[in-house]
């Protein structure tokens, strides 16, 4: 469970300060797919970074299973509980699809053979063609690369999946497939899946949709 308590985040540079999030409070539950919408610069991606422990709130707290992300080892958090999927550049360019999917297991020191066996199973679950298991990312389409990234999330066993525009560079058919997989991930694996998107069709399939306007959550559906 993710709890945001009065979270604010301010970007500072030499000349000015910009408030990306202002006093956001919200609770994300397990087993649900959330869509976060909003115009560019509204603070959607910042929110994901804060939950992933890649940024620390300027004010307020982000609690993951009751632990404040500012006080715990954020790397361990991402290794054990959180997976992040971006629009692109999700995969190691020199590792095959199978090796990319197995990566979270190998960093947890799972024996190589076992990790690769589990990775293959996860790749099958996201319906990647078996002949592509040994392919490098540059040989995969955008949709196939996103499937590998989701398979990596499955292999890691993360209960929180943060996806930043995962369908942004995909055609409609591939985009629908990815959303369907994410939906299954939330409902079947009981994961908390938060998707930042501009695509209303993604929002339609979400269990809850939040809209961020000027750094605050304006609407909940």
């Amino acid at each position: 469970m993710i709890v945001l308590e009065n979270v604010s985040y301010t970007y500072s540079d030499k000349s000015r300060k910009t408030d990306a999030l202002r006093g956001v409070s919200y609770t994300f539950e397990e087993g649900r797919l959330y869509a976060i919408m909003g115009v560019s610069g509204s603070g959607k991606s910042t929110l994901l970074s804060l939950i992933a422990g890649l940024r620390t709130p300027t004010v307020g707290r982000v609690l993951i299973d009751g632990e404040d992300t500012a006080e715990i080892d954020a790397c361990r958090l991402r290794r054990d509980k959180i997976s992040v999927i971006y629009q692109e550049l999700n995969l190691f360019p020199l590792l095959t699809a199978e090796e990319n999917a197995a990566y979270p297991l190998t960093i947890k020191r799972t024996p190589r053979k076992e990790a690769e066996k589990r990775a293959r199973a996860c790749l099958e679950r996201v319906e990647l063609k078996p002949e592509l298991f040994g392919a490098l990312p540059k040989k995969l389409s955008g949709g196939e690369q996103q499937r590998v990234a989701i398979a990596r999330t499955l292999a890691a066993g993360s209960k929180i999946v943060l996806a930043d525009e995962p369908t942004g560079s995909l055609d409609k058919k591939n985009g629908d497939n990815i959303v369907e997989i994410l939906q299954r991930l939330a409902h079947e694996e009981k994961a908390c899946v938060i998707v930042v998107t501009h695509d209303p069709s993604v929002a339609q399939r979400a269990d809850e949709t939040l809209t961020i306007v000027d750094g605050t959550i304006e609407e909940k559906q």
């Binding site: 790397c75 290794r79 550049l89 360019p93 979270p104 960093i107 890691a156």
Partner: peptide, 16 residues
């Protein structure tokens, strides 16, 4: 750069 960032995002510590 991308590879290093990805390793970090996936949970490797900076020292690792």
């Amino acid at each position: 750069e991308q590879e290093l960032a990805l390793q970090y995002i996936l949970g490797l510590t900076k020292s690792r």
